[in-house]
Design a protein around this nucleic acid. Sequence first.
DNA 1: ACACACATGTAATTGGTTACATGATTTC
DNA 2: GAAATCATGTAACCAATTACATGTGTGT
Lengths: 201, 201
Amino acid sequence: MSRSRTAYVILGVLAIHSNQSGYEIRRTVQYSVGYFWGESYGQIYPTLKRLEAESLIAKSNSTTASRKRRQEYSITPAGRACLEAWLAVPYQEDPPRDEFLLKLFFGNEVSPSVSIAHVRRFQDKLRLMLASLEQLEPLARANSAQYPGFPFWMLTLSFGKAQLRSALEWSESAMEVLSADEPATTSNPLLADGIPAVQSA
Amino acid sequence: MSRSRTAYVILGVLAIHSNQSGYEIRRTVQYSVGYFWGESYGQIYPTLKRLEAESLIAKSNSTTASRKRRQEYSITPAGRACLEAWLAVPYQEDPPRDEFLLKLFFGNEVSPSVSIAHVRRFQDKLRLMLASLEQLEPLARANSAQYPGFPFWMLTLSFGKAQLRSALEWSESAMEVLSADEPATTSNPLLADGIPAVQSA
DNA sequence: ACACACATGTAATTGGTTACATGATTTC
DNA sequence: GAAATCATGTAACCAATTACATGTGTGT
């Protein structure tokens, strides 16, 4: 049962809009949920085959044009049922992995300038993404406000913006902290008695 | 060159505190960076062997006690150099994957109660983690404020708290939005002209 | 004619989790 | 002596990325 989540992403975007090719599905994913989800061709094409074999999607080279060498797909009723079933089950958390924070955590092992560079880079990225999301909003509003899914899309968008802004704020105070310095016991400072493990899964 | 990041996590925790066994390293990781990083035994033990073969760590069954059937390791100068080199290179971003947001994005395909349940779950998790981090702080301060790495640990901790708080705030407004309802075009609403792809990598 | 975007796919590899198997030491 | 925790490891499997290979349609 626990099939790859790629399958559900495909079902999801086909549920919103039919007759998309593998190429286009990937683009759609990038453009719409790119902020928090990615898919590669190496994953998409095989999954399309599999989904078609299971009749959750069907070839639908139809409507617009089959003028290109492209294979369009649409979701089937079974596919829709499958998507809905998946959506209903509690989401699964992926193990967290943030290399930026990891490097920052070990910052004492290297020159402060290294950590400063990491934070700066982080900041730049944040600003880029925030600009990107802020730019996306009015366009999305203009283009898709009438779609029933719109409120949900806005919800994820506003989540993204909120996280980005909070990260940006933190990064500014972090830069301040990292501009001041003085660089020690034998009991493990990371594993002292009574410190509970961080809840993660 | 591009070795598994598990190796660097191990080097990092051994750099902070020597003479830890695989078991203990894993616990240390959980307790200290668990909020944003995880490691499994299946990854740690083979990596320890590899690192020892490369002389980046060395067996050091010594100091405290070898009373248990346990193999302790310490970082070597070469290992330290390797860690430092890795820390200095720009962090790599992992492709984002947030199943919660994905399910929320497709929320229109199912009953609103489903999305509400997801957000509620998300909220609960957030509160748990925030409590966990807030509890961690004073303890960490008491136990390790004298360690040179402490400011960096606090930085990652405060990042976590900031993100959590902002997510929590968002979740509250999301719950409001999701408590009001009415549930269409043929051009792809997710892929309208002029919408730029979200910056992610 | 050239370049670029569209389009589809496969193979190799990685990075990682999970489950399994086993056993020692401590604590009650 | 039973249970919990400490402790080490392997095998099977999986999701996913990357690089490679190939070709078509459109616009300049």
